[in-house]
Amino acid sequence: MDKTQALLVLALALFSLGLAGVVVRRNLLVMLMSMELMLNGVNLSLVTFANQMGAAEGAVLVFLIFVVAAAEIAIAIPIVLLLARRRHTLDADAYADLKG
C-alpha cells in the first residue's frame, strides 16, 4: 500500500464515519459535525488526487468546498438555534412533521 492509497483509505474512512454519524447520532449538532467530517474526507481525497496527478484543479475544488462549507454552516447554525428555541430539543427524532 503506497502513500496515495493509504491517504485515500483514510479519506474514505472519514467519509464513511461521517455518514455513519449522520445515521446513528441523535443530536442535530453532532449530525452537522458528522457532515463536516464527510466534507473533510472528500477534501482529503481531492488533495490526494491533485497531489498524485500534479494538477491544481483538485485544489481549486477544495477551495470551493471550503466556501460551500462556510455557507452551509452559516445557514445551518441559525436553523439549529431556531429549532432549539421553538421545541427546546435538538433530538432529530422529535422532528417528524413530514411524516407521510
Binding site: 449522520v22 445515521v23 446513528v24 441523535r26 449530525m31 432529530a92 427524532d93 422532528y95 417528524a96 412533521d97 413530514l98 411524516k99 407521510g100
Partner: peptide
C-alpha cells in the same frame, strides 16, 4: 407512505 416516517435518521 410508511417509508415517509418523517425521521431524518
Amino acid at each position: 407512505g410508511r417509508v415517509q416516517t418523517g425521521h431524518l435518521h
